[in-house]
């Protein structure tokens, strides 16, 4: 496994999984991402990120129940693992501490 660093996109996906709590599946995540960021997101990019995050151990998944929509296919639902939560926290702290290090005068 290639380290445990987070790319920007991966971080966004991870946060989205957190937002969608209990209903985080591929297409849902993409919709939420597009809504939050206003960017156009490819569904394959989302899945790619999900696979990678799961490999890194930040996400875990389970199969949801079948529905009538989606041609009767089941959803794969994702949730944050403990290390997923930790890594989000760490990146948030890193940002905060760096924010704090920026001298006030820069913002004026």
């Amino acid at each position: 496994m290639k380290g445990t660093s987070l790319g920007e996109f991966e971080e966004l996906v991870l946060l989205t999984v957190g937002i969608l709590y209990n209903d985080a599946y591929g297409l849902g995540i993409r919709d939420e991402l597009e809504k939050q960021t206003g960017r156009n997101v490819m569904i394959s990019s989302v899945h790619k990120a999900l696979v990678r995050l799961e490999d890194k151990g930040f996400l875990s998944s389970y199969m949801g129940g079948a529905t009538d929509e989606r041609g009767g296919r089941k959803k794969r639902l994702y949730e944050l693992t403990i290390s997923g939560k930790k890594v989000l926290n760490r990146s948030k702290e890193l940002r905060n501490s760096m924010w704090n290090s920026v001298p006030k005068v820069v913002w004026e």
Partner: peptide
Amino acid sequence: DLADAVEGDLLELYE
């Protein structure tokens, strides 16, 4: 292990 879930997503998008 991906196929079912992705196919579902693709079909949902298609619909």
